[in-house]
C-alpha cells in the first residue's frame, strides 16, 4: 500500500512540476507580448483544476485496468484524463472558466521541451530506418490528415454547417 501511495505521490509531484512550468511559460509569454493571457489568481485556480483532473484521470486509469472489459483496460491514461475533465466540466462551469485563464499555448511549450529531450537517444536509431520508410512516412501522415479532412469537409457540407 505504501508503495502505491509513493507512486501516486511521485506522479502528483511530476504533474505539479508541469503546472509550475506552464505558469512560468505563461509569464514569459506575457513579457514578450503584454497583450497575451494575463497571470491572475484565476490562473492558479485553473492550474489547480488541471492538476486535480489529471490525478483523478490517473487513478481512474489504474482502476479501469482491473476491470475485465478489454476496451476499458486499453483506453489510454491521456484519454481518461480528458474524459474526467469533460465530465466534470459539463456539470461545473467554474472549472471551464478557471481553465480558460490558463493560456493554451503556454501548456504546450514545456511539453515539447521534455518531448525533445526524451527522444534524443533515438536520433541514432534513425540510421536503422531506411530512407524509403522516410518517404512513405510523409505519405502516411498526409494520408490520414487529408483523408479525414476530405470526409469532414464533405460531412459538414452535407450537414449544412
Amino acid at each position: 500500500m505504501s508503495v502505491q501511495l509513493n507512486k501516486y505521490f511521485k506522479y502528483g509531484l511530476v504533474i505539479l512540476l508541469s503546472m509550475a512550468l506552464i505558469l512560468f511559460t505563461q509569464q514569459i509569454k506575457l513579457l514578450k507580448d503584454p497583450a497575451s493571457t494575463p497571470v491572475e489568481w484565476m490562473t492558479i485556480m485553473g492550474l489547480l483544476t488541471l492538476w486535480l483532473f489529471s490525478m483523478i484521470g490517473v487513478l481512474l486509469s489504474d482502476l479501469m485496468k482491473k476491470t475485465p472489459i478489454k476496451i476499458l483496460q486499453e483506453f489510454p491514461m491521456l484519454g481518461w484524463v480528458a474524459v474526467t475533465s469533460l465530465f466534470l466540466c459539463m456539470f461545473f462551469d467554474f472549472f471551464v472558466e478557471a481553465i480558460g485563464y490558463v493560456d493554451f499555448l503556454a501548456i504546450t511549450t514545456p511539453i515539447l521541451t521534455f518531448a525533445g529531450i526524451s527522444v534524443v537517444d533515438r536520433l541514432v536509431d534513425l540510421r536503422k530506418t531506411s530512407w524509403k520508410v522516410g518517404i512513405v512516412a510523409v505519405f502516411v501522415f498526409t494520408g490520414t490528415y487529408v483523408g479525414s479532412a476530405l470526409l469532414s469537409e464533405l460531412g459538414l457540407f452535407l450537414a449544412n454547417k
Binding site: 506522479y11 511530476v14 504533474i15 512540476l17 508541469s18 503546472m19 512550468l21 506552464i22 492550474l47 483544476t49 488541471l50 492538476w51 483532473f53 489529471s54 484521470g57 490517473v58 491514461m77 491521456l78 484519454g79 484524463v81 480528458a82 474524459v83 474526467t84 475533465s85 469533460l86 465530465f87 466534470l88 466540466c89 459539463m90 472549472f95 471551464v96 481553465i99 480558460g100 490558463v102 493554451f104 501548456i107 504546450t108 514545456p110 511539453i111 521534455f114 518531448a115 529531450i117 526524451s118 527522444v119
Partner: peptide, 23 residues
C-alpha cells in the same frame, strides 16, 4: 526521466482539452 514522465507532464494538456469539449 523525460521519457518516463513525459506522459504525466502531458496530462494537464488533456485536462485542458476536456474543458474545451464540454461547452
Amino acid at each position: 526521466f523525460s521519457s518516463k514522465y513525459l506522459i504525466f507532464i502531458m496530462l494537464p494538456l488533456m485536462a485542458r482539452y476536456g474543458a474545451d469539449v464540454a461547452p
